[in-house]
Amino acid sequence: MFAEETFVRNANSIEQIREKLWIPQRHPHVGGIELTPFCNLRCVHCYLQDQEKHKLLSTQEIKLIIDKLFDAGVLFLYFTGGEIFTRLDFLEIYIYAKKKGFIVELLTNGTLIETKAIEIFNMYPPASISISIYGKDEESYFRVTGQNGMYDKVINTLNLLSQNSIHFEIKYIGMKENQEDYPAIYSLAERYGAEFSYSMELFPTLNGNGCTKNHMISLEKIVEIESKIPGKKEEFKRLSEIPNSFINQKEVPLYLCDMAISNFLVDYQGYLNPCHKCRFKKWNMLLDDFNTAWDDYESLLKEKTSKNNRCMKCKYLMMCSPCVVVNFLSTGDYNMPSDTICKLTHLRVDMCNSIE
């Protein structure tokens, strides 16, 4: 213990502590709480759209879960949904988490943030507010969300956050309904000096319903958009040249990400899950001990890929980094990626190899 305390005192960053101490020890330091499956929007791509919705946890029950996460040594906490601001008690929950000392991030569509929330954020600043942007104007927003007036609400939120120097990031969620909007949304982020990211790969609902794929931009269009992003070709080229170190290994872990190592999600019913896609109705934080559940999930890390797992034989594995849970939701097999993922990866390889 003394050596660990000395290392922590001398570490240059939390990232260094994470890589050298927390990851090797499976210390759960990044957790999410899904406060609700309900949302004020009806987005065509939502992976929760066909979920059976049960009674929400009470304010006190969520506080109890927050206490358990605090006792387990969790540092980073994010709140997600559904839409977190549909809960009338959200700000009370948020303040409670901040007072406990968590570094808090909020995931939101940004349409319900009003003056009262801004006042709270000024007193208890979030580390970041990640706002998903669904279009460049009201028409795009309506095609995605089925609701009128949402674009103006989001712009009002961005203005409020910017005027109060509250950190936020903008994430473009690309789909057929807004596939021409990338440049405008990137410019929006630049205008506010906000961090920007994007996602154009839609995965099935948590029930494995592929209806979301009906709204995914064509693979050729995705690559066309990415080819115009400065530095993207070079980035893909670097990734494509990283060797697949698993090709000649006899046994390869099935899960190659941080799930059940550092990350987890508590769903809106209180169940602890290894990540936001991998859901189990096994350990409930209202009744069960966090450490007991966390220790149990270590067994997932012992699962191995099958000999027929084609990803482990692919030279572009490190470029693609397939999610085995998405594999299962898409094909019914953890070891079998969807053809969409493979085709998109190879189109990206072709694109980055076209660098002059």
Results as ranks from 00 to 15, higher is better:
K281I: 08
K315P: 00
K99H: 10
I217V: 07
K343H: 15
P37R: 05
Y172V: 10
S338M: 09
K53M: 09
I185S: 01
G231L: 06
K99Q: 15
K277A: 12
L56T: 02
T157A: 15
S227I: 07
D152L: 09
S162N: 06
N12S: 04
V44P: 14
F7T: 15
Q269D: 08
T212W: 04
S262F: 09
L256I: 01
S306F: 05
A260Q: 12
R9S: 13
T157S: 06
D288G: 15
F142N: 06
I120P: 11
K228H: 13
L286N: 09
E34N: 11
D267E: 14
Y124T: 03
S227Y: 03
K136P: 04
L48V: 08
D267I: 12
S245K: 08
R310A: 01
L347R: 10
K237D: 04
Y255F: 15
I170K: 03
N248Y: 11
G149R: 03
Y47M: 04
T80W: 06
R87Q: 06
C275Y: 14
C43Q: 02
L106I: 14
C211G: 11
L219M: 09
E251S: 06
L88R: 05
Q16E: 07
K313G: 00
N156T: 07
S58Y: 13
I155D: 03
T340Q: 15
K307W: 03
N291V: 14
L219G: 01
I65Y: 02
D339W: 13
S321T: 07
L107E: 12
E226N: 07
S130F: 14
I170Y: 01
P24C: 15
F2Y: 11
Y124W: 06
K55T: 14
H167L: 12
L69D: 05
N309Q: 02
Y151K: 11
K171F: 06
N148W: 06
S130T: 14
C311K: 00
C257W: 00
P183E: 03
L88K: 03
N248R: 08
A127L: 03
E241M: 06
Q16Y: 11
K176S: 05
L158H: 01
Y316F: 09
P230Y: 05
L265G: 01
K100N: 15
P126I: 12
N148E: 08
C278F: 09
L69R: 02
V144N: 08
I65E: 02
L158T: 09
T205C: 13
S245F: 04
E190L: 14
I66K: 00
Y316H: 09
H27D: 12
S338H: 03
L160M: 12
Y134L: 13
A189F: 01
L56G: 07
S299G: 05
F102A: 00
Y172M: 10
T331D: 02
F102S: 01
T6C: 08
E235S: 10
V325H: 02
A194H: 05
V266C: 12
C323R: 01
S165W: 10
C342D: 03
F246P: 00
G81D: 03
K99G: 15
E92R: 14
E356M: 04
E356P: 05
E226F: 15
T292F: 15
I65N: 01
D67W: 02
E4Y: 12
Q51S: 03
G146S: 10
E61S: 07
E356W: 12
S240V: 14
I95H: 10
E201R: 10
H215I: 03
S306C: 13
S330Y: 11
N12I: 08
E4A: 11
F328Y: 15
